[in-house]
Each structure stands twice: as C-alpha cells, then as structure tokens.
Amino acid sequence: MQTIEEYRAYTKQLEDEVGKWHHAYDALMVERNQLVNRIRELETENKQLKGE
C-alpha cells in the first residue's frame, strides 16, 4: 500500500510526464501548421507561374 507522500510523488511525476507530452505535441502542431502554410504558398506560386 502506498503512503500519501508516495502517491503525491507519483502523481507529480505523471503530471510532469503529461506536461512534456503536451509540450511536444504543441511543438509538432506548430511545425505542422508552418509546413501546411508553406505548401499553400508554393501551390499559389505554382498556379501563378502556370498562368503566366
């Protein structure tokens, strides 16, 4: 059986780990959005070049 102190330490460890996952996910989403925006820019440039 865990003591309350052990439980609190374990809970804190889990919260820290989940926080890292959230941070990593947010960073990946920012990178994804930047790539999507760049693809859209390139598609627009491509359409403009084809139209010339």
Results as ranks from 00 to 15, higher is better:
15 E>C: 03
10 Y>Q: 08
27 A>N: 13
41 E>L: 10
13 Q>L: 05
7 Y>E: 12
45 E>Y: 04
30 V>P: 02
17 E>S: 08
42 L>Q: 09
20 K>W: 07
36 V>T: 13
27 A>D: 12
4 I>Q: 08
7 Y>C: 10
52 E>G: 01
2 Q>C: 09
23 H>V: 04
31 E>L: 05
21 W>R: 13
36 V>G: 01
39 I>C: 13
35 L>Q: 08
45 E>T: 00
39 I>Y: 12
51 G>T: 15
8 R>H: 06
10 Y>R: 06
3 T>G: 05
2 Q>E: 10
14 L>H: 02
2 Q>W: 07
3 T>C: 05
40 R>Y: 03
3 T>W: 03
44 T>V: 07
30 V>Q: 15
5 E>I: 00
43 E>H: 07
2 Q>D: 13
22 H>T: 04
15 E>H: 07
42 L>D: 03
18 V>I: 10
22 H>K: 15
52 E>C: 06
1 M>V: 15
20 K>D: 09
22 H>L: 13
37 N>K: 09
18 V>Y: 11
4 I>D: 06
7 Y>T: 07
17 E>I: 05
51 G>K: 15
51 G>W: 14
44 T>F: 06
40 R>K: 11
25 Y>H: 13
1 M>S: 14
12 K>P: 01
37 N>L: 10
48 Q>W: 02
12 K>T: 10
43 E>Q: 10
28 L>P: 02
47 K>T: 03
36 V>F: 03
7 Y>L: 13
20 K>R: 11
1 M>R: 08
47 K>D: 03
39 I>H: 07
3 T>S: 09
34 Q>M: 09
34 Q>K: 08
47 K>W: 02
39 I>D: 05
3 T>E: 06
45 E>H: 05
52 E>Q: 09
26 D>N: 11
41 E>T: 05
45 E>G: 03
35 L>E: 11
15 E>N: 07
48 Q>K: 05
41 E>H: 06
3 T>P: 03
38 R>H: 11
33 N>E: 13
7 Y>R: 15
28 L>G: 10
14 L>V: 04
49 L>V: 01
39 I>F: 05
41 E>I: 00
7 Y>M: 14
25 Y>W: 14
24 A>D: 12
18 V>H: 10
52 E>I: 12
47 K>Y: 00
27 A>S: 05
51 G>N: 14
20 K>F: 03
27 A>I: 00
41 E>Y: 04
39 I>L: 13
15 E>G: 00
43 E>C: 08
18 V>M: 11
13 Q>N: 08
24 A>G: 02
39 I>E: 07
1 M>Y: 14
48 Q>I: 01
7 Y>I: 08
13 Q>K: 13
26 D>K: 15
1 M>L: 12
11 T>V: 07
22 H>W: 12
